[in-house]
Design a protein around this nucleic acid. Structure first.
Lengths: 358, 358
DNA sequence: ATGAAAGCGCTAACAC
DNA sequence: GTGTTAGCGCTTTCAT
């Protein structure tokens, strides 16, 4: 490290400006000069110092992405997609995770690490509107995910209510009538799962059924353990659902594990639908029916949207906040449809299917 | 944005240097001045411009982490741990993924995005020693993971051979004799799974058994699909293993899915051991026995090691490359040990366990 | 088409 | 204890 424009200029016998022109593809440079400069660059192995360049230009080429938890495959998959989308614009992604803590989310949304980043994509869980309103300065920001806010920020999220309704509709169409919801925290419009719970309620009501609160199970967080605990709690208090709609795939998978432990069959005894379409659900012993948000669209839209904001920074009046809804679809798998057919017999002299779990 | 040291100095009626002193906790400042400056800082909402600071200091406070695939929960979990470990040193992590492509790995290992980062943690899959040797400049780098190189870089990795042998030992102790290996690509010391395959071979040989090549199944990559395809291929060519040791948990989970489809019971018909201890394995319908690397130790050691290198940059002679082996342990779960006991009966009038898959 | 010089925001030397 | 100044590597007027 340490080869600067000046070194190259010295070597090529030109001025710094000329080298800069070559590096930045400034059109009006004699081919001869360009060649000489390029030669010097190659010889010295010159690489522009982005730090300095961006100090000058006021942009860093780095955008931050803050997700609750990288251990959640949904966010890991989205993060991967964001990195790819950003790379297509020659932007680098700086990753943070908030553990879903309101305090950390607020910290990130405020100018934490501003100056290093051109913009921020934040996927909040616990953050409240007032935290967002308290944000006075900081780089452009776009929001990702289910939480809704009364704050002037672009927001990328699928239509969670419609998606939840489609999931519940599917269960109703299967003839299920006692559909539990796993993952609600409390009876409040401020809770993270608000929209999906609301979709559950609406669709059951629309079908003429009764959305019993007793069939709603709270979770502390949204991972497999939470799903397992909530499912066990529901069963232990004597509820007998014939279907489960979970806040996300992780909760659904945790629930399915408990069902299997208790000798309940999926989907025969209880059908299960998740949300997120994480890879894992496709390969579960009983593959998981789920709502699949278009993750690549989400990532692309978030990056495009953010870069647009960054480009328009300082514009007056600022463009109004947008509400962008990427697509989603319901992916039906074995956890609601069952195994399509008899498994083909194993090769050789294998014994047939065993007597089941236990 | 746009409040600079100068603005604060003007406001507080002091010089830039004094403000800088306050910001950097320089000890010799009068409490009175400090208070006045701090007041001005708060009023103006001043945040230091890291870009400029680091241009000056020659360090950015950003380290890069390049993993093959964020969609692989192992790497996602490690990435999360690295972010946390870095945060404890007030370092930020810039994330890249290489898709396990040699070309991208080489690009990252060379000075791609140098100048922005102080150092690089790289987890290679396909990279070869010659690529590493070709690296002429660039920030300090430490390597992560199973691949071994003849290149002067610190390398953090558990003892893969010993870990693999422990896994195979466990299967042998269970009385299994036809133990397949899933995930080897070819018969070469250069292939990614080399060490684990070697452990498999050694332990079987040590037990007096025969490590048949026919029981080794190749995979293209290392995810669930690859595991499923490899398992199916192995069965389809008439092999009848009574145990499977997979390159990693994802491959193992994919294999288990195929076993379930074909009516083969785990562990009764085939015991399965994975590698990585991803969260998912704990909640699989049949929970997965696995080799658990100490991910937090890995992350911490990688960050510490890198920061040490960064601190010692330019030292002559450079400290010799280190080979650091974090701990690992075998976690025994149902895929080899079976369900510990009869599932407790479900509440109410539920029917008992069904007739099994299919 | 190219060169000279200023300055982005900051810290390190060196005054006072 | 605090102020002055130079310069990190780059881009950008403004000259030539």
């Amino acid at each position: 490290m340490g080869v600067s424009l000046k070194d190259v200029a010295l070597r090529a016998g030109v001025s710094v400006k000329t080298v800069s022109n070559v590096v930045n593809h400034y059109p009006h440079v004699t081919p001869a000069t360009r060649a000489r400069v390029q030669h010097a660059i190659d010889e010295l192995g010159y690489r522009p110092n982005l730090m300095a360049r961006h100090l000058r230009k006021g942009r860093t080429g780095i955008i931050a992405l803050a997700v609750p938890e990288l251990g959640n495959p949904y966010f890991a998959e989205v993060a991967g997609a964001v990195i790819d989308a950003a790379a297509r614009h020659e932007q680098t992604v700086l990753l943070d995770h908030t553990a879903g803590l309101r305090e950390k989310e607020a910290l990130v949304s405020q100018g934490f690490r501003a100056h290093v980043i051109d913009g921020l994509i934040l996927s909040p869980i616990q953050l409240e509107s007032e935290d967002l309103l308290a944000r006075t300065a900081g780089p452009p920001m776009v929001l990702l995910g289910e939480r809704e806010y009364d704050a002037p920020y672009d927001h990328i999220a699928i239509d969670n209510v419609a998606a939840a309704r489609a999931a519940v509709r599917h269960l109703l169409d299967l003839g299920r009538s006692r559909i539990a919801f796993l993952g609600a925290r409390e009876e409040s419009a401020r809770q993270p799962a608000h929209l999906r719970l609301s979709g559950w309620r609406q669709e059951i009501a629309a079908s003429g059924g009764l959305a019993r609160d007793a069939l709603v199970a709270a979770t502390d967080g949204f991972d497999r353990r939470d799903g397992a605990v909530a499912m066990a709690a529901l069963l232990d208090r004597g509820e007998r659902p014939d279907a489960v709609f979970a806040y996300n795939d992780l909760v659904a998978l945790g629930a399915m594990r408990v069902l299997s432990e208790r000798g309940l069959r999926v989907p025969e005894d209880i059908a299960v639908v998740g949300f997120d379409d994480v890879e894992e659900g496709r390969y579960a012993a009983v593959s998981l029916t789920t709502v699949a948000p278009d993750k690549h669209a989400i990532a692309r839209l978030a990056v495009d949207c953010l870069l647009e904001r960054i480009g328009a920074a300082g514009a007056d009046p600022a463009p109004p906040p947008r509400r962008i809804r990427p697509g989603h679809r319901l992916v039906i798998r074995e956890s609601t449809a069952g195994r399509p057919s008899r498994p083909r017999p194993p090769p050789g002299s294998w014994s047939g299917p065993g007597p089941g779990p236990g």
